[in-house]
Amino acid sequence: RSTHNEMEKNRRAHLRLCLEKLKGLVPLGPESSRHTTLSLLTKAKLHIKKLE
Results as ranks from 00 to 15, higher is better:
residue 2 S to A: 07
residue 2 S to N: 14
residue 2 S to W: 01
residue 2 S to F: 04
residue 2 S to Q: 06
residue 2 S to V: 05
residue 3 T to G: 09
residue 3 T to W: 03
residue 3 T to H: 06
residue 4 H to Q: 13
residue 4 H to M: 12
residue 4 H to F: 15
residue 4 H to N: 13
residue 5 N to G: 13
residue 5 N to M: 13
residue 5 N to Q: 14
residue 5 N to Y: 07
residue 5 N to A: 14
residue 6 E to P: 14
residue 6 E to W: 06
residue 6 E to I: 09
residue 6 E to F: 09
residue 7 M to N: 09
residue 7 M to R: 09
residue 7 M to F: 07
residue 7 M to Q: 13
residue 7 M to G: 14
residue 8 E to R: 03
residue 8 E to K: 09
residue 8 E to I: 10
residue 8 E to S: 05
residue 8 E to T: 08
residue 9 K to D: 08
residue 9 K to I: 11
residue 9 K to V: 06
residue 9 K to G: 11
residue 9 K to L: 05
residue 9 K to C: 02
residue 11 R to W: 12
residue 11 R to Q: 08
residue 11 R to A: 08
residue 11 R to K: 14
residue 11 R to S: 10
residue 11 R to F: 12
residue 12 R to I: 05
residue 12 R to E: 00
residue 12 R to F: 06
residue 12 R to C: 08
residue 13 A to T: 07
residue 13 A to P: 06
residue 13 A to S: 10
residue 13 A to K: 05
residue 14 H to R: 09
residue 14 H to D: 02
residue 14 H to Y: 11
residue 14 H to Q: 11
residue 15 L to E: 02
residue 15 L to Q: 01
residue 15 L to C: 01
residue 15 L to A: 07
residue 15 L to G: 04
residue 17 L to R: 12
residue 17 L to S: 14
residue 17 L to H: 13
residue 17 L to F: 04
residue 17 L to E: 12
residue 17 L to T: 08
residue 17 L to Q: 12
residue 18 C to V: 13
residue 18 C to M: 09
residue 18 C to W: 12
residue 18 C to K: 00
residue 18 C to P: 06
residue 19 L to E: 00
residue 19 L to V: 03
residue 19 L to D: 00
residue 20 E to H: 07
residue 20 E to W: 02
residue 20 E to N: 06
residue 20 E to V: 08
residue 20 E to S: 11
residue 20 E to R: 04
residue 20 E to T: 08
residue 21 K to L: 01
residue 21 K to D: 00
residue 21 K to Q: 02
residue 21 K to N: 01
residue 22 L to E: 00
residue 22 L to S: 00
residue 22 L to I: 07
residue 22 L to C: 02
residue 23 K to S: 02
residue 23 K to G: 01
residue 23 K to P: 00
residue 23 K to W: 03
residue 23 K to E: 01
residue 23 K to V: 03
residue 23 K to R: 10
residue 24 G to W: 08
residue 24 G to Q: 15
residue 24 G to A: 13
residue 25 L to E: 00
residue 25 L to N: 00
residue 25 L to I: 06
residue 25 L to S: 01
residue 25 L to C: 07
residue 26 V to F: 06
residue 26 V to Y: 03
residue 26 V to E: 00
residue 26 V to D: 00
residue 26 V to L: 12
residue 27 P to H: 14
residue 27 P to R: 15
residue 27 P to W: 11
residue 27 P to Y: 09
residue 27 P to V: 08
residue 27 P to N: 10
residue 27 P to F: 07
residue 27 P to L: 14
residue 27 P to G: 15
residue 28 L to K: 07
residue 28 L to E: 02
residue 28 L to I: 09
residue 28 L to W: 15
residue 28 L to V: 05
residue 29 G to V: 12
residue 29 G to W: 13
residue 29 G to N: 14
residue 29 G to R: 14
residue 29 G to C: 12
residue 30 P to S: 12
residue 30 P to R: 15
residue 30 P to D: 07
residue 33 S to A: 15
residue 33 S to R: 11
residue 33 S to Y: 13
residue 33 S to Q: 11
residue 34 R to F: 08
residue 34 R to Q: 12
residue 34 R to N: 07
residue 34 R to T: 05
residue 34 R to E: 01
residue 34 R to K: 12
residue 34 R to C: 08
residue 35 H to P: 10
residue 35 H to Y: 09
residue 35 H to R: 14
residue 36 T to M: 11
residue 36 T to F: 14
residue 36 T to I: 12
residue 37 T to Y: 12
residue 37 T to C: 15
residue 37 T to W: 14
residue 37 T to I: 14
residue 38 L to D: 11
residue 38 L to K: 11
residue 38 L to R: 09
residue 38 L to V: 14
residue 39 S to H: 05
residue 39 S to Q: 07
residue 39 S to P: 05
residue 39 S to G: 10
residue 39 S to Y: 01
residue 39 S to L: 02
residue 39 S to K: 15
residue 40 L to A: 06
residue 40 L to M: 09
residue 41 L to V: 08
residue 41 L to I: 14
residue 41 L to T: 00
residue 41 L to C: 05
residue 42 T to L: 09
residue 43 K to H: 04
residue 43 K to D: 01
residue 43 K to R: 09
residue 43 K to L: 03
residue 43 K to F: 06
residue 44 A to Q: 02
residue 44 A to S: 02
residue 44 A to P: 00
residue 44 A to D: 00
residue 44 A to L: 08
residue 44 A to E: 00
residue 44 A to G: 02
residue 45 K to A: 04
residue 45 K to S: 03
residue 45 K to V: 02
residue 45 K to F: 02
residue 46 L to Q: 13
residue 46 L to I: 13
residue 46 L to K: 15
residue 46 L to P: 02
residue 46 L to N: 15
residue 46 L to S: 08
residue 46 L to T: 10
residue 46 L to V: 11
residue 46 L to W: 07
residue 46 L to F: 08
residue 46 L to G: 05
residue 46 L to R: 13
residue 47 H to T: 12
residue 47 H to K: 14
residue 47 H to F: 15
residue 47 H to C: 14
residue 47 H to I: 15
residue 48 I to G: 03
residue 48 I to W: 08
residue 48 I to N: 04
residue 49 K to R: 11
residue 49 K to Y: 04
residue 49 K to F: 04
residue 49 K to I: 01
residue 49 K to W: 03
residue 49 K to G: 03
residue 49 K to L: 05
residue 49 K to C: 04
residue 50 K to D: 00
residue 50 K to C: 04
residue 50 K to Q: 05
residue 51 L to Q: 09
residue 51 L to G: 06
residue 51 L to N: 03
residue 51 L to S: 06
residue 51 L to H: 15
residue 51 L to E: 00
residue 51 L to K: 05
residue 51 L to I: 01
residue 52 E to M: 03
residue 52 E to H: 14
residue 52 E to W: 14
residue 52 E to K: 15
residue 52 E to D: 07
residue 52 E to T: 14
residue 52 E to C: 15
